[in-house]
Write a protein that binds this DNA or RNA. Sequence first.
DNA 1: CATCTGCTGGGCACTATGCCTAGCAGTCGG
DNA 2: CCGACTGCTAGGCATAGTGCCCAGCAGATG
Lengths: 155, 155
Amino acid sequence: MAIDHLDGRLIELLAHEPRIGVLEASRRLGVARGTVQARLDRLQSNGVIRGFGPEVDPAALGYPVTAFATLEIKQGQGADVRAHLTTVPEVLELHTTTGHGDMLCRLVARSNADLQRVIDRVVGFDGIVRASTAIVMENPVPLRIIPLVQQASED
Amino acid sequence: MAIDHLDGRLIELLAHEPRIGVLEASRRLGVARGTVQARLDRLQSNGVIRGFGPEVDPAALGYPVTAFATLEIKQGQGADVRAHLTTVPEVLELHTTTGHGDMLCRLVARSNADLQRVIDRVVGFDGIVRASTAIVMENPVPLRIIPLVQQASED
DNA sequence: CATCTGCTGGGCACTATGCCTAGCAGTCGG
DNA sequence: CCGACTGCTAGGCATAGTGCCCAGCAGATG
């Protein structure tokens, strides 16, 4: 379940040079090719590595504005709200949380004006009582995993 | 800058079968290999596709608890707080947002008890006035981009 | 009309892949 | 102490994909 140091180095290597092959990776890590292949297989069937999907930048697609919306949901309407939000392409992510606000979602939009349209679409649904939105100005730490991998591989 | 329908189909294909090669992709899309190669190069130098890094699941690394923390920052301490949060491996993401002088960060932890340790470490810093944390219970919509790609490729 | 750009379809040498084998070191329960 | 088991090494092999080239052709543009 936990990962060892070699796993950690492999993940770091893959994160740094994603299009690298198994053979090249084995050279860099100083181990046999079969070892890298076996580790990769294990990490993937473990679920540690979910996949190698392309990381698409919403800004480059024409959606430079990101915001987080906290939604308050009417009791018992959770499933309906989830289904509704799933149909909105600008909703990139949705979580249900503890606390008074029940859901947190990440939105993108073409502009600040467009964000209004997106929010209207998001909250224009019966089960949503109230929404409060925070627009992202800067992203000092973009989604990262390497530091955690390093910590996890030192056990 | 914007992407066309072929770009969209290519990204979808890559998202669905990440380890696919250029040749196989060209067969699936019914175009020449050189075309796929050229599109991929363009999407990458465009910044639309940032990379193909491995998607690591924090839960599989032993960090099954996710939380979002809203931080209130003392005026003028922003840079220091950013630097501090960057050093905490459990901080996966950090945004500065509009609203009452705030930051929003995504945290993970080994357990609910461990989350307390992480939060203490995060807020145990001078520039942070107050923090409110929402623990994630469910993730009905995991981070996704395909619906947005589809919308963007229809123009 | 000439030029440019993007796609096609093909060819080439080189390299990586997937899959196999055999040997060897370390671990663990009996 | 032994046998079984697991994980790594090191190599071989056929197949397939890659990177890089070319000439031709269609559509858009000035």
